[in-house]
């Protein structure tokens, strides 16, 4: 049985700047990293492998250089890494992306039964949190988002019990398998690759699937298949801040002013 982990290679956002004139992202020279939330999804997949003896495959849609990120996943111990790369996939929004990832999962499922698809709760570049649910919808899987702990998986009864982290409360839910699970950072601490595994990963095969392999209708994927189109990227104007009181001279007063301000805005309850 197989766990499929979807990962995305994203620009290291702490190093991304926006061109003030054109409003475009300056990506030149910005290193790529594995989307931080996805590192937790990957870790959870590897833990399931250890606990339930499942195989783990990672898939990623992206340009050819995404191979570097897939090799990192191989160094951490996944069994199979598939790069979904084709010009036809380019420019995709969350809808078109989820179609490609869902199709890849479907094709993997033809060889080995897929029980769980793991995703990070969102990516740090798009921040939409839509791709995971999109995959679940397209595959007809149960979807559990914002999972902070997988309590139990019953492979016989095809049931999973997981705890979701919601605002101000937790929710323990049961769902039937196969399921798509998107994880929050609290779910685990990612492992670090050993050197022998890194060296193994350097020479390991990353499977490449282009659209000849995937056979998706080109009208439904990539830029053409995207329901949203990017018209402009800009930094939102930030309202000028305000200094409350004089914290250095009278910290108590400043703290009280802050509390008043927060309760006025309905941000805290007193």
């Amino acid at each position: 049985m197989l766990v499929v982990v979807c990962i995305k290679q994203v620009p290291d956002t702490t190093q991304v700047k926006i061109d003030p004139v054109t409003g475009n992202l300056i990506r030149e020279g910005v290193p790529f990293i594995m989307n931080p939330f996805d590192t937790h999804a990957l870790e959870e997949g590897l833990r399931l492998k250890g606990k339930y003896g499942l195989n783990v495959a990672v898939i990623s849609m992206g340009p050819p250089n995404t191979e570097i990120t897939l090799r990192k996943a191989l160094a951490l111990g996944v069994d199979n890494a598939v790069l979904l790369s084709d010009r036809a996939f380019g420019g995709a929004d969350t809808l078109a992306t989820s179609k490609v990832l869902a199709e890849a999962t479907r094709q993997l499922a033809q060889k080995e039964e897929v029980v769980i698809v793991l995703c990070g709760k969102q990516t740090i570049d798009g921040d939409t949190a839509q791709v995971g649910p999109g995959i679940a919808t397209r595959l007809g899987y149960s979807q559990l988002t914002l999972v902070e702990h997988i309590e139990n998986i019953d492979l016989q009864a095809k049931k999973i019990i997981a705890r979701r982290k919601l605002e101000g409360r937790d929710e323990v839910v049961e769902a039937s398998l196969p399921a798509m699970i998107s994880v929050v950072r609290e779910i685990n601490t990612p492992r670090y690759p050993t050197v022998p595994m890194r060296l193994m990963a350097e020479g390991a095969t990353v499977t490449l699937w282009d659209n000849k392999e995937m056979k998706l209708n080109e009208e439904t994927i990539g830029l053409k298949g995207s329901a949203t189109q990017v018209r402009k990227i800009f930094s939102p104007e930030r309202a000028v801040g305000e200094i409350l009181g004089d914290g250095a001279a009278n910290p108590d007063e400043a703290a009280n002013l802050l509390i008043d301000k927060l309760s006025e805005g309905g941000l805290i309850l007193i």
Partner: peptide, 12 residues
């Protein structure tokens, strides 16, 4: 670090 990837958590 290199063979076992075991170290104090702060180092990750």
């Amino acid at each position: 670090v290199e063979m076992k990837a075991r170290f104090p958590q702060e180092l990750l």
